[in-house]
Design a protein around this nucleic acid. Structure first.
Lengths: 231, 231
DNA sequence: CCTTGCATGTCGCCC
DNA sequence: GGGCGACGTGCAAGG
């Protein structure tokens, strides 16, 4: 990894055009050729960047640019598209390189899979008398998060989200359309379950006869912990 | 901005839990307290991070950690939530600080808003005789990008995307469904306009009686520039 | 301040 | 390589 602090201006031309006026920034060149341009604020997203794989070519400035103070020009070219980044360096303030090696990578714990497991274990949160058929019920267009039966023996399809928005309702609608073509399952009711459900999603779901269920993750985990304590 | 190259392990606890095993990485501490942990590959997303505003507290390692080689522990605490990052530093390999100042920020050209403005100005690209009703026409389920009338006085709803995908067609379909319930507007025709339209999206749109329109942004901007030159 | 929808989204999975 | 779904999504604009 190569780190450069420089006064520079930057132009990106590719999926759109973007320009950064002259200022002091951090340029990070990674081993795979990707380049990140960071300021001293904002979140983790750089001001501008080039995704890997890319190649960096350093050139002398055009006469006009040289006269306006450009010392060197970095041409960063994406290997597979015609996206490119042009970095005009006016002043080189610091330079450092270090070989970091390959990273062992991130280990995550506690994502949506947990919510799904908890709801499957506490299936009566769908309503009294519900029984679990199975999680990740496969269909031709993808897996239904949870398939269950209600007290009357009717089939219920559950789409589970951490944050419930319109896309999730569309997703569940597609599943319901498909499942309702199966005479062994039809009629299939839909339940849209999420920790938080956006108003527009709730309107759309209700309009389509899909029930909404807000889940309290902490409460569900609490029940799970209480269950675990029995062993 | 403070840059540190260090052998470290990292733990994040907040909306989920995540762990990075011991390896050599770049730690970037920004002026607003945010921290980024980068490896020498991947795209612009760090392996782990803390968003601003946050505070960094450096502590001595617990006895047990010290015995396993930890020299110092960074506690990065988010100011508004209880998200936190714990960075256990085993070896400090490089350190550099530089005040970058405030960045003037990125200037973008070619995002959806630009495309929408140009299409509204050049509304006859929808076909001869079209007139603009308004941009961002509000409905209960969200704003229709452009509402227009065609030569026959019929209403036309336009969904605009930089890249036309299936979900864009779904979005327009929802708007059309809703708009067609309004007797003052019905029947409403749909036009799916994008710089690039994916084959599957085109098929779906056509199947639903929605017209597809491919937009040439450079050409549209060229017309705009030509107009501007008149003044 | 909260909600909403775009993003050069990125990332990982499966086909 | 494309489609699909999740993300600690981030981010800005608008009510």
């Amino acid at each position: 990894m190569r780190l450069v602090i420089a006064r520079c201006s930057v132009d990106y031309i590719g999926r759109l055009r973007a320009h950064l006026p002259l200022a002091t920034r951090l340029l990070m060149v990674k081993a795979d050729g990707s380049v990140l341009i960071h300021s001293d604020g904002g979140s983790y997203k750089p001001l501008n960047w080039m995704s890997p794989p890319a190649t960096l070519r350093v050139a002398e400035p055009e006469t006009e640019d040289a006269e306006s103070g450009v010392q060197e020009v970095w041409h960063v070219q994406h290997a597979k598209s015609d996206d490119r980044l042009v970095i005009s360096i006016h002043e080189h303030l610091h330079e450092y390189s270090h070989d970091l090696g390959v990273d062992p990578g991130l280990v995550k714990d506690g994502v949506e899979a947990d919510l799904q497991r908890l709801l499957a274990e506490q299936i009566d949160r769908l309503g009294p008398g519900h029984t679990l058929v199975r999680r990740e019920y496969m269909t031709a267009i993808g897996p239904v998060d949870i398939l269950a039966r209600n007290a009357d023996g009717g089939t219920v399809a559950v789409e589970l989200k951490r944050r419930g928005d319109i896309d999730g309702v569309e997703q569940l609608t597609r599943y319901l359309e498909l499942l309702n073509r199966d005479p062994l399952l039809a009629p299939v009711k839909g339940i849209f379950a999420a920790q938080q459900i956006k108003p527009q999603a709730r309107v759309l779901a209700t309009d389509r006869g899909i029930a909404c269920l807000t889940l309290d993750y902490d409460e569900m985990r609490g029940v799970d912990d209480a269950d675990s304590r029995l062993f």
